[in-house]
Design a protein around this nucleic acid. Sequence first.
DNA 1: TTGCGATAGTTTCAATTGTAACCATTGAAG
DNA 2: CTTCAATGGTTACAATTGAAACTATCGCAA
Lengths: 164, 164
Amino acid sequence: MPQSARASTSSRDKLHLDSFVPYRLSVLSNIVSMSIAHTYEREFGLSIPEWRVIAVLARYPNLSAIEVAERTAMDKVAVSRAVQSLLAARRLVRTYDKGDRRRSMLRLSAAGRAVYTRIAPLALGYERKLLNALSASDRRALDRLIGRLMERARLLDHLDGKGS
Amino acid sequence: MPQSARASTSSRDKLHLDSFVPYRLSVLSNIVSMSIAHTYEREFGLSIPEWRVIAVLARYPNLSAIEVAERTAMDKVAVSRAVQSLLAARRLVRTYDKGDRRRSMLRLSAAGRAVYTRIAPLALGYERKLLNALSASDRRALDRLIGRLMERARLLDHLDGKGS
DNA sequence: TTGCGATAGTTTCAATTGTAACCATTGAAG
DNA sequence: CTTCAATGGTTACAATTGAAACTATCGCAA
């Protein structure tokens, strides 16, 4: 079998990490996340999960833990831990649903809201500085592209393999 | 003090996780990475760091551990661990530089190359399926946008705060 | 030579995270 | 009324990761 097409690594099978989109996305996302995370860790002792919980509760008060998980793309264990440390820091108030006592109802305390109103501008400021690298139309394009890719990635994920 | 402008969260300070670019990037990147990681974990028992080391050594043989770290955006501890488990699995060969015996020289064994030639097409196949969500010109745009953002993110990172 | 700061890489220990098992409550079925 | 599967959430334990300290070698200087 001379230069078998099956066994040889044809040029289109070559993978350059530098131009491999999943790799590039991962590196970009890590730099960005760590940059922001560093800000609110330093200033408020918040971890990323904690910050996400605060952000979503600022927008949608009285969610249950599971609803928070859905909106933040975290799993319920991560939410549970973030909620516990936020409760301990008195940045959150938890009550339980009358009529379904499994269901918690979470909202920010005054202290929690204060944290939010101080961090949100920092986070948005970082985003703005980041997006300054792009023209207005590029920014719109970016949004659209991320949306499309997210949709497709979820589809692929559910189609094959781990579609639990 | 009726609707104090200072204390209230003005509309441009509001942060919607759903439209916050750093958050969207992070979610997208996680879905994508885990989807691919799942494939090579299942089929070859490779972790993400191990896969990255293999990918870069397939392209550039005889790198030292630190050079691998630079090209994969991993830190040297992660590289050290990945290298150890790849050595144990006999997928890597390590020699030491004559003349500087601190410096290792890493390259794939035959088994390592075999793993590479089987995974690379899977990874590229995934990328292709993902990018099928986009037109050719959108794909070019995506590449350009990621590049610009990466550059800007690194700049911002080094400017302020943690510029170690 | 000896000494010393820098570089390559490893080890150690603590913190974070992920998985699975678990407890409590609910709702519906018998 | 019991029983039992499903749901909300927590706990326990193992695996991963990160930061800092450590070892070994090198290059240069006195």
